[in-house]
Nucleic acid binder design. Structure first.
Lengths: 118, 118
DNA sequence: ACCCATACTTACTTTTTTATTAGTGTGGTG
DNA sequence: CACCACACTAATAAAAAAGTAAGTATGGGT
């Protein structure tokens, strides 16, 4: 994956704030490039397969979809369900932890919708 | 400033989602590198001067502080109050628009605090 | 004339993220 | 045996974000 320098100023700052500020921590979980978009679809559609997500996430690349999903899974936000079939079938859904953000995300969605540009 | 390419895939995707998804739009306003940290301090302390913000935002550079403030002001989240004195005195505060996010931010803070790592 | 305070800018480099394109594995089908 | 489906991975290049260090502006004080 993208390998970060462990001790760059940027990384150090990021870690410091994640550990000292609830807001920073929250954003670190949902702030990734396509993460809220993924989460939004999973909020509305419960379970989605990799290719179903790809269809919905207009413009996303394989690499981004895979990496964002992996991070969400690592952070405990999303569950990966592998049906171990052939051809492969894998579904993604929000974990209980992920769902605990539902209220907040709904409010963010409403607020954003109400203030869309244009 | 960092000059972006108008027609890179990345920029195109970003614009598309900002315009079509409330969540993306909300995040575009508060998701910048130091924005929530700035906003968090302004929520608690009402008005802060440039140097006061700098003290509190451990690790931030001049460049980042100035650029994040400028974006927040451009987006209508923050007010810049210039007292036109010498030596210069400038204060920053949340606009009404910025304050309309207060509830949501409080919840994000609480949620993040409750789920801090370590 | 020189220095101070305050709020920034600017130029240049490094780091980080994202795009692009091609490839992997595997069992079943024609 | 070639090909398909599906969920990815890998390598490389391009783009964007952030760091670093020095500079700007200006009135007043010494």
């Amino acid at each position: 994956m993208g390998n970060r320098k462990e001790n760059s100023t940027n990384t150090i700052n990021e870690i410091y704030w994640k550990e000292h500020c609830g807001l920073s921590h929250t954003l670190s979980l949902i702030g990734g490039r396509w993460k809220i978009n993924i989460i939004a679809f999973l909020l509305h559609e419960e379970k989605l397969r990799y290719n179903e997500l790809k269809e919905r996430l207009v413009g996303i690349s394989e690499r981004m979809l895979a990496s964002q999903l992996k991070e969400l899974v690592n952070d405990g936000m999303v569950n990966r369900i592998d049906y171990e079939q052939f051809p492969p079938k894998v579904e993604y859904e929000l974990t209980t932890f992920g769902q605990s953000l539902k209220e907040i995300l709904n409010q963010m969605e409403d607020w954003g919708q109400a203030n869309l540009p244009g």
